[in-house]
């Protein structure tokens, strides 16, 4: 196999990259300097060699524990549960959240054979119990899909008996969007979740 095809195939396996985009990236790399390509390949190697899973929350980390878990300034009374580690970044970028995280590594999906044992649920419950009441609120930030909803319902039942209050992210009209273009289900949810001004 030619080196061009080999790299194209590898790149097109990445999410959001089709064979045409992959080929374009390959051509771009060929035109660039050896130094640039070396930097990229070293960065990838370094990533794979150094990235670990945080032993506390399941987030990506370069050390045994991640930056959030080791940061003494974070609010340890609030815990936000997400499906995937990259969603931690989405919430962190808002700059509005100062609490802790817990990554499930997926959602309940019986059709794919994913139950609570396949998810990071036991660790979550242990974390809550071991905090001895320090964790007062658990925000369930699973996705608004049918699986994400069922996962939220499941977690709510498991967590509430341990003490913390369980909350769910609000749903509604995206900021900056025209009502006209929002789908009916979302508008219906927003109507149900409306609040007094």
């Amino acid at each position: 196999m030619s080196v061009i095809k080999q790299l194209t195939d590898e790149l097109s396996r990445l999410p959001g990259i089709g064979s045409k985009t992959a080929l374009r990236l390959v051509h771009h790399l060929m035109k660039g300097s050896k130094e640039e390509a070396g930097q990229l390949s070293r960065a990838i190697t370094k990533l794979i060699e150094n990235i670990k899973i945080c032993k506390e929350c399941g987030n990506f980390s370069e050390d045994e524990f991640c930056e959030v878990c080791t940061n003494p300034a974070r609010d340890r009374s609030v815990l936000c549960v997400v499906e995937e580690a990259y969603e931690v970044g989405a919430i962190e970028r808002t700059g509005q959240y100062r609490g802790m995280f817990h990554v499930l590594g997926g959602r309940l999906s019986p059709l794919d054979g994913v139950g609570p044992e396949e998810l990071n649920v036991a660790a979550l419950l242990r974390r809550i119990t071991e905090s001895q009441g320090e964790i007062q609120e658990v925000i369930v930030a699973t996705n608004a899909s049918v699986e994400g909803e069922a996962t939220a319902v499941f977690l709510e039942r498991e967590i509430r008996s341990l003490g913390p209050c369980v909350t769910r992210l609000a749903r509604g009209i995206p900021v900056g969007s025209d009502l006209e273009y929002v789908d009916g289900t979302t508008i219906a949810q927003a109507l149900v979740g409306r609040r007094e001004m």
């Binding site: 139950g115 609570p116 049918v146 909803e149 039942r157």
Partner: peptide
């Protein structure tokens, strides 16, 4: 049972 019941609400 708790996994089955998680689907009830929806």
């Amino acid at each position: 049972g708790s996994v089955v019941m998680a689907w009830n609400q929806g």
